[in-house]
Simulated assay, not measured.
Amino acid sequence: MYRLFAISAIALIMISSCSQGPGTMNVKGVLENGAGETVYLQLFDDSAPADSAVIAQDGSFQISLRNPKLDFFKLSVGEQGRPVVLVFDSTQTNINITGDASGLLGSYSVSGSKDSELLKEFFDATEIFRYEMDSINKLVQGLPNDMDPVIRMALQQQQTKRKNELETELKQMAINNASSPAALSIISAVDIRNALPEYKTVSDSLKTVIPYSPYLTSMSDKIQQMDMALAQQKKQQAALAKLSPGSQAPDIDLQTPDGKFVSLSSMKGKYVLIDFWASWCGPCRRENPNVVKLYQKYGGKDFEILGVSLDSNKDRWIGAIEKDGLEWEHVSDLKKWNSKAAADYGVRSIPFTVLVDREGKVVATKLRGKALEDKLSEIFGA
């Protein structure tokens, strides 16, 4: 979980402020079991230490920085020690750190910087979660193979419940401290799909605090991308809702390989299987022999197939039709996933089929293999 904490913090190292208030900031404290060791303080993204100090015999140390800009820093004992993450600027005079030098990350406490204190609270919450998950994992791994699966499932459900609780806790922590740069680190530990409103609140709150932060810009872009994805998902769901049995299937009017326009509406009077596929789609190509067999069996009984390709390369499209022996009508606008027909039908993966009746109304969707064979047998007889 430290890795989660560190990654979230690393994502924020670009945060900076245009103003640098005058003054000196002191990072000082007392570290047990560290006399003679060196304490390093550096910007999180800087390979060279910003400053260092040797821990005195009584455990005390002090590092002074002149006019530090608002940024994330890391403090470690020894160059290889696991660092404590801090955030501060020159408006804060004294940052106090205490802990055990032999295990600083797991023992430290901080005062004098509300942002750093908040990061500590975040770290503690994630460390407790990591410990609990490790404990449950050990229990699961120690279960005999013949153990009642109900017990195993109960432990897995406990993990899921605890994960949801942590996400709720972190979201609330970020909202309660939305104007703190530390909130970026906190909310970044939660999947944006589960916390879009909280991401937006933090982003909006920090626009006046760190307006020139590249990471804040990156977060805004991420939010925009998620908004677009949700809008697209909503559009696809609306399209799929139109494909409920008995509903009128959207018309399709696209070109065949030889440039002739063929529409779904022109096939009224027959049952039509609309088959969304592509030459590059492995599962589609593996399903084609089954579709060929069914077409050969029912093609003369008021049954037709309209192949709608999501290809972008015409030669490959035609080559696949010929190689697989697909002797029914084929159309495409060669726009791959941007195909209008795919959008109208809410197609998110292929193969995807829609069976319509003689009136062009939906009978069923996603029929493949035996399910398709059984449905055609039901309609036309064995």
Rank of each mutant, 00 (worst) to 15 (best):
G142W: 15
I55E: 03
G21F: 11
N67A: 14
T24A: 11
D45V: 03
S109D: 06
Q92M: 14
K69C: 05
S116H: 08
S116W: 02
A48V: 09
Q20E: 11
K69A: 11
S52H: 13
A50P: 00
P22D: 09
N26H: 14
L41K: 02
D100A: 08
F61D: 04
L119I: 09
T126I: 13
S64V: 02
F129C: 05
G99A: 01
M147W: 14
S116V: 00
A125L: 12
D89W: 09
A35C: 01
Y108N: 07
A35I: 06
G59H: 13
S102A: 12
D100K: 12
V77P: 00
I95E: 04
Q92K: 10
T93F: 10
Q141A: 15
I15Y: 02
T126A: 04
D58A: 08
M14C: 08
L65T: 05
F61M: 02
N67C: 06
I55M: 02
F73I: 03
I136Y: 13
G99N: 01
G112Y: 06
S16Y: 09
S113P: 02
K74A: 01
V87I: 12
Q42I: 00
K74R: 15
E32A: 13
L143Q: 15
D51C: 04
R82C: 04
S47A: 10
N67L: 08
L139G: 06
I95Y: 02
L70M: 09
L139H: 06
G23R: 13
V39D: 03
